[in-house]
Amino acid sequence: METKKKTKKVQLVKLAHARSGDKGDTANVGLIALKPEFYPLLAKQVTAARVARHFRGLIRGGVERYELPNLNSLNFLLHGALGGGGTISLKTDAQGKVFSTALLRMEIAVPRGLRV
């Protein structure tokens, strides 16, 4: 390649913190930018389609995304994520408590000069 790459790949764990919970068989993941200037990067790149790809094979339903710019946050609903949910689920993480950190494994491209 002639031109030097203008971006670098960074794992979300360097850009955001997160908390997840459950509603029936749906897990929610709230993704919160560690600094306000990271929020536009998250909003642009961590799309519902991207998150659905990230969790492919791990969830049975679709992904919805909601924006909360006031909290520098995105909220994702992962449907069919909890093996039936509640008391029916056989999973260790039946309440989806650590889907949060599973999302933080995702990598996105950020400007090369960005300090994380």
Partner: peptide, 25 residues
């Protein structure tokens, strides 16, 4: 903020018997 997002669905429509709260405000 972490707690606000806990078990969140559609943040503009947080439905309770008392009102609908808009968490984006």
């Amino acid at each position: 903020t972490e707690q606000l997002l806990y078990e969140m669905g559609d943040p503009e429509n947080y439905i309770t018997p008392d009102c609908i709260a808009d968490f984006t405000t």
